[in-house]
């Protein structure tokens, strides 16, 4: 069974078509790079996959569960980093991760171990007792990522996980994501092509709400390379 199965997924906002009959599947353990110009519908698709927004038409299944019919089963399986990291500035990093962990049904020693693991992996372990509001933007972003990793969900959906990070932090986060390949399925959106090249096996390019290309990174890099393919496909 594929991890993500999307059929004819469509989202309409009043008069605007955000995504238009998307079809794609993602196998377990894959890292999918989700590309597209601004406003192509990347965030909307991710919001539907996490059950935050309902589709106007079509279906999305996560691990065999329909996101609309069985939202709780789907939510048990995902970790999600939205475009804006969902943080409470008045909480400490520790209190925040504890809170999210409890909502993900982690408890006791298990929760402690998980907080240890994700803060070490994201380099936020030294900031555990600081207020989130007092952290720099890069650290805040990494706390958002730590939150998505809690409980090692089968599927991680990361909306621009490297946004707002300096080059060194970017490399660190990408390395981290790459290290999870095979164990977890990861969908990450970005508009930086080099990042996708570095870590993803497959690339999904969408443009104006439609699938423009969906193939392995090698195939899409044939000819003039990924940049050229991307520009050709999205300038239409």
């Amino acid at each position: 069974m594929p991890m993500i199965e999307v059929t004819n997924l469509t989202k309409r906002y009043r008069d605007r078509l955000a995504i238009d009959h998307l079809n794609f599947t993602v196998e377990k353990g894959e890292i999918l790079g989700f590309l597209g110009p601004n406003g192509a519908g990347k965030s909307t698709t991710m919001k539907i996959l996490t059950g935050f927004l309902p589709p106007s038409e079509g279906k999305a299944k996560i691990d065999g569960f329909d996101v609309f019919e069985q939202p709780l089963e789907v939510k048990k399986r995902i970790g999600y980093l939205p475009e804006t990291p969902p943080l409470y500035p008045e909480m400490t990093v520790r209190a925040y991760l504890r809170f999210v962990g409890r909502l993900k049904a982690l408890g006791g020693d298990n929760l402690k171990a998980e907080i240890d693991r994700v803060t070490k992996a994201t380099g936020t372990a030294t900031e555990l007792d600081r207020l989130i509001g007092a952290l720099s933007k890069g650290y805040q972003h990494r706390v958002g990522l730590a939150q998505a990793m809690l409980g090692s969900p089968a599927l991680m959906i990361l909306d621009e996980p490297t946004e707002g990070l300096d080059p060194k932090q970017r490399a660190g986060v990408l390395e981290l994501i790459k290290s999870l390949a095979g164990k977890q399925t990861i969908v990450l959106s970005t508009h930086i092509l080099a990042e996708v090249k570095a870590i993803a096996q497959k690339v999904l390019i969408i443009n104006r709400g439609k699938v423009a290309a969906y193939d392995s990174i090698d195939k899409l890099s044939e000819g003039g390379g990924l940049e050229e393919t991307f520009i050709k496909l999205t300038s239409a």
């Binding site: 059950g51 935050f52 999600y80 939205p82 969902p86 943080l87 409470y88 909502l103």
Partner: peptide
């Protein structure tokens, strides 16, 4: 406002 509603609504919580 601070977009944490998205967190609550995507955690396994009714």
């Amino acid at each position: 406002r601070q977009k944490t509603f998205e967190l609550l609504m995507t955690c396994p919580v009714r």
